[in-house]
Nucleic acid binder design. Structure first.
Lengths: 188, 188
DNA sequence: TCCGAATGTCAACAGATGTTGGCATCCTAG
DNA sequence: CTAGGATGCCAACATCTGTTGACATTCGGA
């Protein structure tokens, strides 16, 4: 057996993972303040004190649970004509894979650290990925912002507010309709 | 002097108004759960018990404070070419007039009754206003949904998440860039 | 096998929150 | 002028929240 200090599976890793998974679900469903540590612990079938031991505080737990990688594709490798469609498709898929993003979005509406995390994701993941396409023109930043606005509006109305008219849309419909709009912002 | 029962100003009307105004500010800034009755009462310079007397409960207060009329213009009277621009302009103005809408949006992310209210506004104000333009075609509902998605995305990123790239935009820039996108959804 | 660390449970605390009832004060109708 | 309702404040309640510390149990290396 290997030494612990050299990255062997600890038994607590499973517990931590269970807590994080439960946290994501609760945060995604209830938002930051209504997702209580007790509820999260109950769903993970452990004691609330464990959460404190492993994550220090509720905010620490959220920080761990809200780590999210958008896995932005390399847009330079996408045919110019299909950039818009590719973008919407990617976001829809990535969001529905797990509920980390929904947890982040719901929490960001009322919790400042969560909002900060959201802004960080824009700055460190979205903007750099769009840069090769938007170039360094004066309004590149503006267009990147509007693309995010568009895309987050979709997430908000479909998964958070659940506007029936948006929920009813098929994925294909969204791609067909929103794709060209993003395209117009990407390649004017 | 007139009888009270026949709609003369009661002294409590001023108090109620002060409470509602303070409630809107707190709900807009903090969301539903973090906006406490005590904080609202303190801002209105009255006792928390007054809130209960006049609005019954926190949810009752929110229901009163979150009443919002988008004052949608008659789009049939707008030149076809300018529909998109007219829409963005109207929303931007209406949002920034008072913070009722921000209170609603923030709260709707984590509070179910607030979400329901949001859906009701879509159904009773947005959809009917768009109907004369979108007609009754099969995908009219879909396009109405996507218009809302677009517009709410703007409100979310600019006022709630405060993405720097979106906050930095001038009103004119937004109108010029988003107007044509809405136009494409309104008159394909 | 045995000891110390890791893991987990339990009970409790302090503070905040929505809410309630009692009591003082003000205004106004009769 | 005066009684009764409207208006307001105060103190308290039950509950929930994040958080803490003490204690039990389990595990792994010597």
């Amino acid at each position: 057996m290997q030494k612990r200090t050299q990255e062997r599976h600890r038994r607590s890793d499973a517990t931590k993972a269970a807590i994080v998974a439960a946290a994501r679900e609760r945060f995604a469903a209830d938002g930051y303040e209504r997702a209580t540590i007790r509820a999260i612990a109950a769903q993970a079938r452990i004691d609330p004190a464990m959460v404190m031991r492993y994550f220090g505080s509720k905010e620490g737990l959220f920080a761990a649970a809200a780590q999210f990688d958008l896995r932005m594709p390399n847009l330079a490798a996408v045919p110019r004509q299909r950039l818009g469609v590719a973008l919407v498709t990617h976001f829809l898929e990535r969001w529905e894979e797990d509920d980390t993003f929904m947890a982040l979005l719901r929490a960001a509406a009322t919790n400042e650290p969560a909002g900060e995390r959201m802004r960080a994701i824009f700055a460190s993941q979205v903007a750099p990925a769009l840069a090769p396409v938007l170039g360094t023109s004066a309004n590149a930043r503006a267009r990147a912002g509007l693309i995010s606005s568009q895309v987050l509006g979709l997430a908000l109305t479909r998964y958070v507010l659940r506007l029936p008219a948006v929920v009813a849309l098929q994925r294909k419909q969204i791609v067909e309709q929103v794709g060209p709009l993003l395209q117009a912002l990407l390649v004017p």
